[in-house]
């Protein structure tokens, strides 16, 4: 009888332990989930940023702009045909 009572008591404690555990991990899951959500969102934002920077970069390196900068700001030009010499080795 005493033995049985002991087992019952033990089971009650185990049950309480499991339930507390369950609640704890449920909460933990929620927290982690919220974190993945925000990381996902961050990923989307970074992706968008990357695409935006790609576009900005491609605008900056557009042949049109490079030609303009080379000609106007750096005073460069393509060599005339007469200025081209071939090095023979």
């Amino acid at each position: 009888m005493n033995m049985q009572n002991g087992i019952t008591l033990l089971l009650v404690f185990i049950l309480i332990g499991v339930l507390v555990n369950y609640v704890f991990f449920q909460n933990e899951t929620r927290k982690l989930f919220a974190e993945t959500q925000s990381v996902e969102k961050q990923k989307l934002e970074l992706n968008a940023e990357w695409a935006r920077l790609q576009i900005e970069k491609s605008t900056l390196v557009s042949n049109n702009r490079i030609e303009q900068v080379a000609r106007e700001q750096l005073g460069m030009k393509l060599p005339e045909d007469e200025q081209v010499l071939v090095i023979v080795r």
């Binding site: 460069m76 007469e82 200025q83 081209v84 010499l85 071939v86 090095i87 023979v88």
Partner: peptide, 25 residues
């Protein structure tokens, strides 16, 4: 190039100022 009209070898006289021009830049 496969048909050199002016090479460095046969126009050294012209080439010198041209090379300097490049050097200046």
């Amino acid at each position: 190039a496969d048909q050199m009209s002016r090479t460095l070898a046969d126009s050294t006289v012209d080439a010198v100022p041209l090379m300097q021009e490049v050097g200046d830049v």
